[in-house]
């Protein structure tokens, strides 16, 4: 009080901090989704959006229901999931293996890094005819395409992750006389895990893209074949039902990796 009297003015210091810190808001993502879908629904119902531009979301849901009831959903989903699982597992395993080797051995790094850089930008879809010749028109060529597509990003993420392992920890291992094998197994591999897992996130998204591409070129069943068929008939409801399945698949895989990350990397701050 006496200060106020002395100087005449007392003002609250204005707050100017805060912000620039991502805060999780759980329901906003869902709300955006709901709003977009409802806008589409309202637009198509009122005729503002013509049925040729966009199918009614409710019709898409109906089509999805029919697909489920008829059992066709599994006929298409089962081979797709198998292809995805086999191809991605092959590609990721090989990719992590090669990536670790590049990270550990300078000769392999010198030989492989330019090769990987050369392979990485090739659109793998363009190689599908080649894979058909090499591996036949059956499943093998599809596995190969998906594996090849997941391989390169996994390699790049893995050797980056190995490079980023804290050198002081490796020195520590050496200074305690740990064997080379122990250093790799107990220090380098766990230390590279965060980088490998975040690389896997990208690789698996690419695997889904390639899955559809592979199925569009000669597959009787599968989500890709289903979408292609719907597209050829301009059956937009079916097309969208297929696309929604792919989106859900992506969200599911990403959630799964998130769960694995939370479990394997629970030591992280």
């Amino acid at each position: 009080m006496s200060d106020t009297e002395e100087t005449g003015i007392a003002r609250q210091v204005a707050f100017r901090g805060g912000g620039f810190a991502p805060t999780p808001y759980r329901w906003i993502g869902l709300a955006v989704f709901v709003v977009l879908v409802s806008l589409a629904e309202i637009g198509t119902r009122s005729g503002f959006i013509s049925p040729l531009t966009l199918p009614k979301p409710s019709d898409v849901l109906l089509t999805f229901g029919e697909l489920y009831d008829s059992g066709l959903l599994w006929t298409h989903l089962a081979p797709s999931l198998t292809r995805l699982a086999v191809g991605a597992a092959l590609g990721a395993t090989l990719g992590i293996g090669v990536g670790v080797l590049i990270g550990l051995f300078s000769y392999i790094r010198a030989g492989m890094v330019p090769l990987i850089a050369a392979i990485f930008p090739i659109p793998k879809i363009a190689l599908l005819p080649l894979f058909v010749i090499w591996f036949g028109i059956d499943e093998a060529s599809k596995y190969a395409l998906i594996a090849f597509g997941t391989f390169t990003p996994t390699v790049v993420a893995t050797y980056g992750a190995v490079d980023n392992v804290d050198r002081t920890l490796i020195r520590m291992g050496q200074s305690f006389g740990m064997s080379w094998k122990s250093i790799v197994r107990k220090i380098i591999l766990p230390g590279a895990m965060p980088g490998i897992l975040s690389g896997l996130r990208i690789s698996l998204a690419i695997a889904i893209i390639l899955l559809v591409a592979a199925e569009m070129l000669g597959a009787e069943h599968g989500i890709g074949a289903y979408i292609l068929e719907a597209g050829a008939l301009y059956n937009l409801e079916r097309l969208f039902a297929g696309v929604v399945i792919l989106s859900l698949l992506g969200v599911l895989l990403s959630t799964a990796i998130g769960a694995i990350e939370r479990y394997v990397l629970r030591w992280r701050t």
Partner: peptide, 17 residues
């Protein structure tokens, strides 16, 4: 077991152990 043994400034502990 290890005649010459270091203690580092930045501790060098494995965070996952």
């Amino acid at each position: 077991l290890n005649p010459l043994t270091y203690v580092f400034q930045d501790f060098a502990l494995l965070p996952w152990r």
